[in-house]
Design a binder for these strands. Structure first.
Lengths: 226, 226
DNA sequence: GTCTATAGCCTGATAGAC
DNA sequence: GTCTATCAGGCTATAGAC
């Protein structure tokens, strides 16, 4: 076995990726504004100059991280919109997956105006993401309507869609304030999911209510969330 | 007329107050993290050292500003909970006033975790404020229920209350992203009010729906908002 | 191509002299 | 009430080792 060959035993994670992973954790904990490049380097276990080798600026780091969100989100959107099965369970899965994505990239939503201020290049991409998600939720609503799971008056739909976005992105911040939760743990996803579900609840049919219960019973807490 | 005497013509605003006013504007525009003490001093038209004379640290400035929010909020809470009239219009007024307060102090809610990080002394007060408001909204709900304006199942109430808080504090951030609104103008209050109202809408009685319409018709845009 | 060591530059909060 | 000095810390950059 040659030197440098690891025989498929210890797949060495490339430094670039390790940087992105560590940065994501740090950002999620304290927000980009309160994390220094020195700290990132220290956490990864590399030199600050080496960090510079991969990402010339902090903005470049933010952009690279945002790209991973975009990848997660667009993969998700494609799957969601291509769905045609009649199984009502997909709506539960839909919400749960979207919630996981939000959770993983939650630093973004903590102070969006602040992030855009330091990385103006992210302004349009964030808007596009938000618009895209709105369309997906809209499509989901239409399918649910067709499946007799829900009935939302046309007049109420726009506000409902906006509220879904607001609550699904800001429940984490609310929790940290109201409940005094500092380190948001995966089990709090349950709480957030319930909040978003409650927005739909008044409009659900009996069938829809049963489906909702199924979703809430599959607790996040019992799963491994990355 | 003696020097320094202004003859009651130009009531001189104390420097301390001018600092607080200017800081509020700056914070609302860009968030405390992106406003420097130097800029505050420049805006007020005083020296940075003079600013230091009134507020030893940036944290002290945040605390003083928060106190003004507390004053607004507690005055509001007292009035709200002491109300006993049967006029359904008070619920409209209630929401409109609370919304005004949120608007005036909106910098607080932009990155609450960040603010608490730089001013840990605000941790408990912010929690207390949130809890207090929850109680007030809860009381309002009970009154509305008694007045046959609304009927919220007991199971739904907790989530509804949390969503009211989340949407009423984060609609502004949503707007700046989704609509690309940078400088949030008072007329956007209408939009936010509609969002919060839509949370109650499915639970309203016919009487309640009429009342809701009255509230929305009194547009913020046509008023002077401080 | 990957990484370390170190330094320069700049901003911003604080403090004490006036 | 004002001005200037100090001090810390963060981001960026370069030279050179592996």
């Amino acid at each position: 076995m040659a030197a440098g060959d690891n025989g498929g035993k210890t797949r060495r994670v490339p430094t670039r990726e390790r940087i992105l992973e560590a940065t994501l954790v740090l950002f999620n904990n304290r927000g980009p504004g309160r994390v220094t490049t020195a700290e990132i380097a220290r956490t990864v276990g590399i030199n600050e100059g080496n960090l510079y080798y991969y990402f010339k600026t902090k903005e470049a780091l933010l952009e690279a991280l945002f790209k991973t969100l975009e990848e997660d989100a667009s993969a998700f959107m494609v799957e969601s919109s291509s769905n045609t099965t009649a199984d009502p369970g997909i709506y539960s899965d839909f919400m749960r997956r979207w919630f996981s994505i939000i959770w993983v990239h939650r630093y973004i939503f903590r102070d969006l105006p602040g992030i855009i201020a330091t990385a103006p290049s992210l302004r349009e991409p964030t808007r596009a993401l938000s618009m895209g998600m709105r369309l997906v939720v809209e499509g989901m609503l239409q399918q649910m309507t067709a499946a007799n799971l829900i009935d939302v008056p046309v007049d109420d739909a726009p506000q409902l869609l906006a509220n879904v976005w607001i609550v699904s992105t800001y429940w984490a911040v609310y929790l940290s304030l109201q409940e005094g939760v500092d380190d948001l743990a995966p089990e709090h996803l349950d709480w957030g999911l319930k909040q978003v579900a409650s927005l739909f609840k008044p409009y659900l049919s009996e069938l829809g209510k049963g489906e909702l219960q199924i979703m809430l019973d599959r607790s996040f807490s019992s799963e491994k969330v990355p």
